[in-house]
Amino acid sequence: MTTKSNDTLNNKHINYLPKVSVVVPVYNGEEDLRELIPCLLAQTYPSELVEYLLVDNNSSDNTLKCLQTAAEQCPITIHPFSENKIQSSYAARNTGIRAATGEIVAFTDADCRPQPQWLELLVQPFVNLDVAIVAGEVAALPGKTLLERFADRQETLSQKHTLAHKFRPYGQTANLAIRRIALQKVGLFRPYLTTGGDADICWRIQQEYIGKLEFAPLAIVQHRHRTTLKELASQWRRYGRSNRYLHELYGIDLMRAITLSECGYGLVRWIVKEVPKLSLKAALGKGSVIDILSTPIGLFTARARYYGQMSATMPEKASDIDWL
């Protein structure tokens, strides 16, 4: 009996092959496209059922020309577009969504590297009609620097953090798919929002009880971690700004203040207690430099996130929603 049920479910997955539109915003992505396009070419999902809508967002390099060349030369369906009116990845995504003809609209970013079975596995959960959103996993590309290894250890990019959000779960647009009908009902991304739009669109769909969100852990895209303290600070300040904007839109809790005295106490405790203990472990082969530096890097990112949250001001018209 169980075998028959599993066979039926597997057959449903095999037979469920909807038209998919993949939307990718691109800003100064000339270098990224050299690695992204081969990843799109390698997808196992039937190529005749996929269209790739790559949207240049007013780049200053040769991104648009690269998109046009790819559309002419690649055996897959690539449609190049341009969004020059609003400098925002969400506005660029909306441009792609408006041109999309697929039943499912999938999203990734130019600096992501979708694995070959990404689309195939990302689409499968939609066989259940009560599913409106599917989030795939975001894994790290192999890193060599200490900061990359730290972020990998913390699984900074993983969807498990956003899926566990205490307000409502959401998936990051680096690896997300949404039924087009859901976008018709709740609207598109807020085009003037500069961060936090992935949470916002997932929350709007869930608020209207249009469908549930499913996680597809084996539908993987890879992304590179930040390699310098400057890049790391920028990343966590953006997380802080996102928190501020979502607070303005939904009233979610803000991150509490992390004072300099708390940071000072944390560093003193680290030097006096953690460094000797962790250094001994590292010398015995039971630990690493990342273990030793985990506390100061964690304090650094927490302060950056808090600064981003406190210094953020909602962009003008950020609450506006675009519609199909």
Rank of each mutant, 00 (worst) to 15 (best):
D56C: 05
N57Y: 06
N57L: 04
N57I: 06
N58L: 10
N58M: 09
S59W: 02
S59I: 01
S59K: 04
S60Q: 12
D61H: 08
D61C: 09
D61P: 11
T63M: 09
L64I: 11
L64N: 13
L64K: 13
L64A: 07
K65I: 00
K65A: 13
C66K: 14
C66P: 06
C66M: 13
C66W: 14
L67S: 06
L67M: 05
Q68R: 11
Q68K: 12
Q68D: 07
T69N: 15
T69Q: 15
T69Y: 15
T69E: 15
A70C: 10
A70Q: 06
A70T: 09
E72P: 04
E72F: 08
E72A: 15
Q73P: 02
Q73T: 15
C74T: 14
P75R: 01
P75M: 08
I76T: 12
I76E: 09
I76C: 08
I78V: 12
I78S: 02
P80A: 06
F81M: 10
F81E: 03
S82M: 07
S82F: 01
S82V: 05
E83K: 03
N84T: 14
N84P: 15
K85A: 13
I86M: 07
I86H: 01
Q87Y: 11
S88M: 10
S88N: 13
S88G: 11
S89K: 12
S89M: 12
S89T: 05
S89H: 08
Y90K: 05
A92T: 02
A92C: 01
A92P: 04
R93I: 03
R93T: 05
N94V: 03
N94F: 09
T95A: 09
G96I: 00
G96P: 00
I97S: 02
R98I: 11
